[in-house]
């Protein structure tokens, strides 16, 4: 049953906003072990250049299909990928519900990630939009799907941590 986005109630809207705030806080505080918990066991996470997304090209910068792959990414980022340390700060704005599909809510939001490296000025790192599908799973809202479509034409060297 698909319903218009306007049908969802205020409490759920607030809960969705809280989900985005918690997601950003998790990444910005570097609590990466918590990151996979924002997703369902079977899930889709993609970080994909807008160029590919708009042209229907499937290649993503990162593409994961399960919470297990997300855990592997956390291990990979924190234990295996050598990199210059940096902070990231997510600004998420314009969260909107775009549809309801059965038990799932479709949402979109703009994001801007600022990177701050040691001894350097803060800089715009990655900007784009989230295209998400949210479900209630084991007592909390989780992302069944999160597609991060970034406008940024060039990645400033590397992306280590999740967006």
């Amino acid at each position: 049953m698909n319903a218009p986005a306007a049908m969802i109630d205020v409490a759920l809207r607030l809960e969705i906003h809280d989900l985005y705030a918690a997601y950003a806080a998790c990444l910005d505080h570097g609590e990466l072990d918590e990151w996979p918990e924002f997703f369902t066991e079977e899930c889709v996470y993609k970080l994909i250049p807008r160029e590919n997304f708009d042209r229907g090209l499937p290649l993503a910068t990162l593409s994961f299909e399960s919470r297990g792959m997300l855990k592997d990414r956390v291990y990979g980022a924190t234990q295996t990928l050598f990199h210059q340390p940096y902070y990231q700060r997510h600004l998420v704005a314009g969260i909107r519900v775009t549809g309801v599909e059965g038990d799932a809510v479709r949402t979109e939001a703009n994001y801007l990630v600022v990177r701050t490296k040691k001894n350097e000025l803060s800089e715009v790192y990655n900007c784009g939009r989230y295209i998400d599908r949210i479900v209630r799973d084991a007592g909390r809202l989780r992302f069944a799907e999160k597609i991060c479509v970034f406008d940024s034409e060039l990645i400033p060297n590397s992306i280590i941590y999740p967006i």
Binding site: T61, F82, Q84, I155, N157, S158, I159, I160
Partner: peptide, 17 residues
């Protein structure tokens, strides 16, 4: 492809070094 490119498990750190 998760291994390669700007975020890849065996490529992101090439750019870094």
């Amino acid at each position: 492809a998760n291994l390669f490119g700007p975020a890849g498990y065996v490529s992101a750190d090439d750019g870094e070094v």
